[in-house]
Protein backbone atom coordinates (compact mmCIF):
# COMPACT_ATOMS: atom_id res chain seq x y z
CA UNK A 1 0.00 0.00 0.00
CA UNK A 2 1.19 3.47 -0.65
CA UNK A 3 0.03 6.93 0.23
CA UNK A 4 -0.84 8.43 3.54
CA UNK A 5 -3.51 6.86 5.64
CA UNK A 6 -4.67 7.06 9.21
CA UNK A 7 -5.66 3.44 8.97
CA UNK A 8 -2.47 1.58 8.29
CA UNK A 9 -3.21 -2.09 8.31
CA UNK A 10 -1.56 -4.41 10.74
CA UNK A 11 -0.35 -7.57 9.04
CA UNK A 12 0.42 -10.92 10.51
CA UNK A 13 1.43 -14.28 9.23
CA UNK A 14 -1.18 -16.95 8.84
CA UNK A 15 -0.54 -20.65 9.23
CA UNK A 16 0.58 -20.92 5.65
CA UNK A 17 3.14 -18.19 5.92
CA UNK A 18 1.10 -15.64 4.03
CA UNK A 19 0.65 -12.10 5.23
CA UNK A 20 -2.89 -11.34 6.22
CA UNK A 21 -4.46 -8.15 7.56
CA UNK A 22 -5.48 -8.37 11.18
CA UNK A 23 -9.15 -7.60 11.63
CA UNK A 24 -10.81 -6.21 14.71
CA UNK A 25 -14.03 -7.46 16.22
CA UNK A 26 -17.15 -5.81 14.85
CA UNK A 27 -18.22 -4.87 18.34
CA UNK A 28 -14.98 -2.97 18.90
CA UNK A 29 -15.31 -1.25 15.56
CA UNK A 30 -18.90 -0.32 16.29
CA UNK A 31 -18.03 1.12 19.68
CA UNK A 32 -15.18 3.16 18.23
CA UNK A 33 -16.81 4.52 15.12
CA UNK A 34 -20.59 4.40 15.07
CA UNK A 35 -21.12 7.80 16.66
CA UNK A 36 -18.62 9.48 14.35
CA UNK A 37 -20.18 7.87 11.30
CA UNK A 38 -23.65 8.89 12.43
CA UNK A 39 -22.72 12.50 13.05
CA UNK A 40 -20.78 12.70 9.80
CA UNK A 41 -23.75 11.40 7.86
CA UNK A 42 -26.15 13.68 9.72
CA UNK A 43 -24.14 16.77 8.84
CA UNK A 44 -23.53 15.65 5.30
CA UNK A 45 -27.12 14.96 4.39
CA UNK A 46 -28.56 17.48 6.86
CA UNK A 47 -31.23 15.08 8.06
CA UNK A 48 -30.51 13.41 11.41
CA UNK A 49 -33.31 10.87 11.22
CA UNK A 50 -32.39 9.78 7.72
CA UNK A 51 -28.76 9.74 8.78
CA UNK A 52 -29.58 7.46 11.64
CA UNK A 53 -31.37 5.07 9.32
CA UNK A 54 -28.48 5.27 6.87
CA UNK A 55 -25.89 4.61 9.55
CA UNK A 56 -27.91 1.68 10.87
CA UNK A 57 -28.27 0.26 7.39
CA UNK A 58 -24.57 0.64 6.67
CA UNK A 59 -23.58 -0.86 10.00
CA UNK A 60 -25.91 -3.79 9.37
CA UNK A 61 -24.31 -4.43 6.02
CA UNK A 62 -20.89 -4.17 7.61
CA UNK A 63 -21.94 -6.67 10.27
CA UNK A 64 -23.26 -9.06 7.62
CA UNK A 65 -19.96 -9.11 5.76
CA UNK A 66 -17.59 -8.09 8.51
CA UNK A 67 -15.03 -10.64 7.39
CA UNK A 68 -14.48 -8.63 4.24
CA UNK A 69 -15.23 -5.15 5.49
CA UNK A 70 -12.85 -5.50 8.41
CA UNK A 71 -10.01 -6.00 5.98
CA UNK A 72 -10.54 -2.60 4.42
CA UNK A 73 -7.92 -0.09 5.34
CA UNK A 74 -10.66 2.16 6.65
CA UNK A 75 -13.84 0.26 7.53
CA UNK A 76 -15.38 3.46 8.87
CA UNK A 77 -14.92 4.97 5.43
CA UNK A 78 -16.66 1.99 3.91
CA UNK A 79 -19.57 2.36 6.31
CA UNK A 80 -19.80 6.10 5.71
CA UNK A 81 -19.85 5.62 1.96
CA UNK A 82 -22.47 2.88 2.09
CA UNK A 83 -24.58 5.01 4.39
CA UNK A 84 -24.22 8.06 2.19
CA UNK A 85 -25.16 6.14 -0.94
CA UNK A 86 -28.13 4.60 0.81
CA UNK A 87 -29.29 7.98 2.09
CA UNK A 88 -28.90 9.55 -1.33
CA UNK A 89 -30.97 6.78 -2.83
CA UNK A 90 -33.66 7.40 -0.27
CA UNK A 91 -33.50 11.14 -0.82
CA UNK A 92 -33.86 10.72 -4.55
CA UNK A 93 -36.78 8.39 -4.10
CA UNK A 94 -38.41 10.64 -1.53
CA UNK A 95 -37.96 13.74 -3.65
CA UNK A 96 -39.30 11.99 -6.70
CA UNK A 97 -42.39 10.84 -4.90
CA UNK A 98 -43.14 13.78 -2.69
CA UNK A 99 -42.01 16.71 -4.77
CA UNK A 100 -45.03 16.50 -6.94
CA UNK A 101 -47.17 17.10 -3.88
CA UNK A 102 -44.94 19.70 -2.41
CA UNK A 103 -45.57 23.36 -2.87
CA UNK A 104 -42.05 24.17 -1.69
CA UNK A 105 -43.12 25.59 1.59
CA UNK A 106 -40.10 25.84 3.78
CA UNK A 107 -40.71 25.04 7.35
CA UNK A 108 -38.98 27.03 10.06
CA UNK A 109 -36.20 25.19 11.84
CA UNK A 110 -35.09 26.46 15.19
CA UNK A 111 -31.33 26.97 15.31
CA UNK A 112 -29.32 25.16 17.93
CA UNK A 113 -28.02 27.66 20.47
CA UNK A 114 -24.36 26.58 20.32
CA UNK A 115 -24.10 26.13 16.58
CA UNK A 116 -22.96 29.13 14.58
CA UNK A 117 -26.08 29.92 12.57
CA UNK A 118 -24.05 31.71 9.89
CA UNK A 119 -21.94 28.65 9.21
CA UNK A 120 -24.97 26.44 9.55
CA UNK A 121 -26.74 28.39 6.84
CA UNK A 122 -23.63 28.46 4.70
CA UNK A 123 -23.16 24.70 5.00
CA UNK A 124 -26.74 24.22 3.84
CA UNK A 125 -25.82 25.92 0.59
CA UNK A 126 -23.20 23.30 -0.25
CA UNK A 127 -23.95 20.26 -2.32
CA UNK A 128 -23.88 16.88 -0.63
CA UNK A 129 -20.62 16.10 -2.42
CA UNK A 130 -18.99 19.22 -1.06
CA UNK A 131 -20.38 18.73 2.42
CA UNK A 132 -19.03 15.17 2.39
CA UNK A 133 -15.44 16.26 1.82
CA UNK A 134 -15.79 19.04 4.37
CA UNK A 135 -17.14 16.67 6.99
CA UNK A 136 -14.54 14.00 6.41
CA UNK A 137 -11.64 16.44 6.23
CA UNK A 138 -12.59 18.85 9.04
CA UNK A 139 -14.88 16.83 11.29
CA UNK A 140 -13.39 13.36 11.15
CA UNK A 141 -10.00 14.90 10.41
CA UNK A 142 -9.19 12.45 7.67
CA UNK A 143 -6.42 13.09 5.19
CA UNK A 144 -7.08 13.75 1.53
CA UNK A 145 -5.99 10.22 0.69
CA UNK A 146 -8.25 8.61 3.27
CA UNK A 147 -11.15 10.85 2.30
CA UNK A 148 -10.63 9.97 -1.33
CA UNK A 149 -10.56 6.29 -0.55
CA UNK A 150 -13.70 6.51 1.56
CA UNK A 151 -15.64 8.42 -1.08
CA UNK A 152 -14.28 6.43 -3.98
CA UNK A 153 -12.91 9.50 -5.73
CA UNK A 154 -9.44 10.67 -6.68
CA UNK A 155 -7.36 12.61 -4.14
CA UNK A 156 -7.23 15.46 -6.62
CA UNK A 157 -11.01 15.56 -6.63
CA UNK A 158 -11.01 15.78 -2.85
CA UNK A 159 -8.60 18.68 -3.06
CA UNK A 160 -10.64 20.56 -5.62
CA UNK A 161 -13.96 19.91 -3.90
CA UNK A 162 -12.52 21.02 -0.58
CA UNK A 163 -11.18 24.19 -2.13
CA UNK A 164 -14.46 25.01 -3.81
CA UNK A 165 -16.45 24.19 -0.67
CA UNK A 166 -14.31 26.45 1.48
CA UNK A 167 -14.55 29.25 -1.05
CA UNK A 168 -18.30 28.88 -1.16
CA UNK A 169 -18.53 28.93 2.61
CA UNK A 170 -16.35 32.03 2.79
CA UNK A 171 -18.46 33.76 0.18
CA UNK A 172 -21.65 32.91 2.01
CA UNK A 173 -20.25 34.24 5.26
CA UNK A 174 -19.14 37.45 3.61
CA UNK A 175 -22.59 37.92 2.14
CA UNK A 176 -24.10 37.36 5.55
CA UNK A 177 -21.72 39.85 7.14
CA UNK A 178 -22.50 42.40 4.47
CA UNK A 179 -26.21 42.01 5.07
CA UNK A 180 -25.82 42.68 8.77
Amino acid sequence: MSGESEFEQVLELDDDGRLQPVSMAFEDFFAAHHQAVLSALAITIDDPELARDAAAEAMTRAYQRWGDVSLHRNPAGWVYRVGLNWARSRLRKFRREVRRHDLDLDRPVLPHPVVDPRLDAAMALLSVDHRAVVVLRFHLDWSEATTAEALGIAPGTVKSRTSRALSRLAEALEETDADQ
Partner: peptide, 12 residues
Protein backbone atom coordinates in the same frame (compact mmCIF):
# COMPACT_ATOMS: atom_id res chain seq x y z
CA UNK B 1 -14.97 24.89 10.59
CA UNK B 2 -13.78 22.09 12.84
CA UNK B 3 -15.18 23.81 15.89
CA UNK B 4 -18.48 24.40 14.14
CA UNK B 5 -18.69 20.80 12.98
CA UNK B 6 -17.96 19.52 16.44
CA UNK B 7 -20.73 21.69 17.87
CA UNK B 8 -23.03 20.67 15.06
CA UNK B 9 -22.38 16.99 15.74
CA UNK B 10 -23.04 17.51 19.43
CA UNK B 11 -26.31 19.24 18.62
CA UNK B 12 -27.69 16.34 16.63
Amino acid sequence: LSEFLEAKAASI
